[in-house]
Amino acid sequence: MESKRQQKYAKLIQKELGDIFQKEARHLVGKAMVTVTRVGVSPDLSVAKVNLSFLLADPKSTYELINDHKREIRHHLAKRIGKSVRIIPELAFFPDESASYAQHMDKVISDLNIPPAPEEEEEEDND
């Protein structure tokens, strides 16, 4: 269970990282749309686990590129929130698999061959 402080901190980081990926880190991601889907912060606020979702790009290569430029992204984050927080957390990026999992499950369900239920004849009581 995250404390209110952790939740507030996570929400701030999520918002600012979203803006960074749209503006400052545009040269890293190119035309890809990067969405920060979830941020979890450690109790001491020193580590932020960031889940990312990617559109219009190869998720694996974009994820690796972002992971390689972690320091630069953290620097942009520090410029944005440095005055309001004591610690700029270390960033740990993880690809968010929920969209691809939902797509996979949708395909599995649509590929199921379920025969229609037999129609039951209603018996009428003639007493």
Rank of each mutant, 00 (worst) to 15 (best):
H75D: 08
V29N: 02
Y9W: 02
K49T: 03
S53I: 01
E120G: 13
M33W: 08
I114T: 04
P115Q: 07
L77T: 03
N51E: 09
G82I: 04
D44R: 10
L17K: 00
T62Y: 02
K70S: 08
G82P: 03
T37D: 02
D127Y: 15
L77Y: 04
L56N: 15
L45P: 00
K15R: 10
P89C: 06
L56Q: 14
D68R: 15
A102F: 10
V50L: 04
G82F: 05
K4P: 10
Y63V: 10
D19L: 13
F54T: 00
D125C: 15
A10V: 08
S42K: 04
I109W: 10
S3Y: 10
A32N: 04
L52S: 00
P95I: 05
V108T: 08
S42G: 03
P95Y: 03
G30H: 04
F21P: 01
A32R: 01
A117R: 09
I88H: 11
T37H: 04
D19Y: 10
G40P: 07
I66F: 05
A10F: 00
L52K: 00
G40F: 13
I87N: 13
A32Q: 03
R74P: 02
G40V: 14
E121N: 13
E72H: 13
A48S: 05
Q103M: 11
G18N: 06
F21T: 00
E120V: 12
I109Q: 11
A25I: 05
F93L: 07
A25K: 03
P115A: 13
L45W: 01
R74K: 14
T37M: 00
S46R: 12
V29F: 02
D127V: 06
E16P: 01
A25D: 01
R5Y: 09
Q22N: 15
S100W: 10
E120H: 11
Q103V: 15
N113A: 15
V29Y: 01
R5W: 09
I87S: 09
R71C: 06
A117D: 11
K31G: 09
A92C: 15
S110F: 06
K107G: 06
N113I: 12
K8P: 03
K83R: 15
D96P: 02
A117G: 07
Y9A: 02
S3V: 11
A102C: 07
Q14F: 02
L55E: 11
D96A: 03
P95C: 08
S53L: 04
T62C: 09
L56W: 12
N126E: 11
M1Y: 09
V39I: 04
L55F: 12
P95D: 06
V29C: 04
S61Y: 06
N51I: 05
L28C: 03
Y63W: 07
Y63H: 12
P89T: 00
K60F: 14
E24D: 09
D125I: 11
V41R: 01
K4R: 15
Y9E: 00
P115G: 05
R80E: 07
E90R: 14
D44L: 06
K8N: 08
R71E: 08
E121Y: 07
A102D: 07
E119V: 12
E64F: 07
D68A: 12
E119F: 08
